[in-house]
Amino acid sequence: MAECIDLNLKVNGTEYRASVHPFARLLDVLREDLRLTGTKEGCGEGECGACTVLLNGRVVNSCLVPAVQAQGAEVVTVEGLAEGENLSSLQAAFLTHNGAQCGFCTPGMLLSATDLINRCPNPSDDEIRDGLAGNLCRCTGYAKILDAVHSAAEREAAR
């Protein structure tokens, strides 16, 4: 086996150190080394968005990020969205509006939607569609996801 590399990164506010395969992807580190399995792999080629995380505040497909590029980075995954028992506005809205069906695209969808609402606090249908175009969902036809994002944006605006 090839020699491992030492990786330091901060995930959901916690510092981690891991010894990882030189070809490992950020996705592998999250799922296998840190056992944060909320982030999913759907295609391994950056197409489906199930592995979406925030890397230093930017939305990325973690299957396309070599782990070495995450050295010293701050990462937010789906496990970092709730505060203790309290769901984030988006998580709560996905639950109420049936925005998650099989749930496999949901972690990535939630991260992209979180980023969208941060950039665009009161998005239109079209802005949501554009913001989530990199996250494929096969269950919902996207309607309930649009509803959930609108509802969460309204709740955030009211805070």
Binding site: T37, G38, Q91, L95, T96, N98, A100, G103, T106, P107
Partner: peptide, 18 residues
């Protein structure tokens, strides 16, 4: 509300590869 929905939005639902 979907029974397993909370686990799904938290990312704690355990799929096979998880």
């Amino acid at each position: 509300i979907r029974k397993e929905g909370r686990a799904k939005v938290l990312g704690t639902a355990i799929y096979t590869d998880d």
